[in-house]
Design a protein around this nucleic acid. Sequence first.
DNA 1: GAAGATTGAATATTCAATCTTC
DNA 2: GAAGATTGAATATTCAATCTTC
Lengths: 158, 158
Amino acid sequence: MTSTATGPHWLDAEQQWLWRQWIAASTLLPDRLSRDLYQAHGISLADYEILVRLSESPQRRVRMSELADKTLSSRSRLSHQIDRMEKAGLVTREMCTEDRRGQWCVLTDVGWDLLVAAAPDHVESVRRHLVDVLSPEQFTALGVACGVVADRLVAHQD
Amino acid sequence: MTSTATGPHWLDAEQQWLWRQWIAASTLLPDRLSRDLYQAHGISLADYEILVRLSESPQRRVRMSELADKTLSSRSRLSHQIDRMEKAGLVTREMCTEDRRGQWCVLTDVGWDLLVAAAPDHVESVRRHLVDVLSPEQFTALGVACGVVADRLVAHQD
DNA sequence: GAAGATTGAATATTCAATCTTC
DNA sequence: GAAGATTGAATATTCAATCTTC
């Protein structure tokens, strides 16, 4: 659309520029972080996030549905992803005794070791491409704004 | 990893929180916008971006390699995507006479009409989920920070 | 040999249907 | 019937190889 196709609710030129910067960063940064992680440790950013969530939980285990919520993934997607990670020996599934519909996803020692090895590199990558290229104020403003947006999106899936 | 696993370059608790807000927003917002677009008009956000870029260009056409750059897509990905959009009648390919290695991607009337129909809804969706939930200052800060990050990522693909 | 672009296979994600237990 | 979870097919993306023209 050309900039002459204006209407009551159109974005003005500045808003459009800001919006495109968002698109660019939110496309390029995950690509880059995932590539860094893959080249150094053979896992994707999605795999890494799962390892982190499991490592933070008591007994290094999380129920599948809760893991899906925490990683902002659909259940189907998570299920397939855990299949792959299980094949790679990073996690295992265990029956849930309290609720027999449920499954625990459990971090293996191999998964833990991989996370320990990958974490410093990943943090370095996050710093290099995001945190360190911004002033502390800019980074804070970015995160806070994202928090507002994300909260609204989680709240009303309307 | 637990928060006790600190090191010289680790992110502190606040930085981690900010970082996770970024992940949440950059995961949820595109999902949401793409879903809105798909339900109302049968196209993805990626399709929409391509229609926009074509519509903005002289004679509604862009060279494949340039289109890949503009949409931050790999050439392979774009090639497959244009296959699908060509099948759907939204774009066509045309030989490039100046450089016979090249191809033009051209917006069809059907594609144009679809963009015209979808654009107001999409803009409304962007406003509802992003622009309007932030103060103007917050939105500006978000976009500016994203611009800095994106520029660095484009500049040195190191 | 490099740039423009595509191809097919491998991998990942989405979608709708299904199954079990609550 | 709803929640937890999975399954297989359809769709989309990545990766490495290839082809043509510069």
